[in-house]
């Protein structure tokens, strides 16, 4: 299983060197190469994360937590992960403004996802204040 990590590290280094060689002629293909290497490494990371998610599910069942609570957290992590990588790639391509816009989009999406939780919290606060 750890050979996936070594393959990923080797692939990333090779992509970086090949990207340098290609960037002298045209930056477009070099950028696509780095996007591909990033995709492959992230896919490998997801393979490692799958058993961790199963463990989280077991923890949630053991602690009898609400399923929506963990769902919101996981979705926020997924959105942040993809937005961070895509934003960094935009920055590498010389378009940092697009990267920033993407991060703002990700923040808005995370806020929208956590809206039910925030409403629940507000309801709880109102309930507590009503009882006082």
């Amino acid at each position: 299983m750890t050979e996936l990590f070594w393959k990923g590290a080797a692939g990333t280094l090779i992509a970086a060197v090949l990207g340098l060689a290609l960037a002298k002629q045209g930056k477009d293909v070099a950028l696509l190469l780095s996007v591909l290497a990033g995709c492959m490494v992230l896919t490998a990371a997801m393979t490692y994360l799958a058993p961790v998610m199963v463990f989280f599910r077991r923890l949630q069942q053991a602690a009898q937590l609400d399923e929506a609570l963990l769902g919101v957290l996981l979705k926020a992590v997924g959105i942040s992960l993809v937005a961070q990588i895509a934003g960094l790639i935009c920055g590498d391509a010389g378009n940092a403004a697009l990267g920033k816009a993407l991060q703002i989009l990700a923040a808005a999406a995370v806020l929208w996802i956590s809206l039910p939780l925030l409403e629940e919290l507000l309801g709880l606060i109102e309930k507590i204040l009503g009882e006082v």
Partner: peptide
Amino acid sequence: MEIDLIFKIAAIGII
């Protein structure tokens, strides 16, 4: 993990 895809794209770039 398909590292050969990285080489394929690098080869296309060089060509």
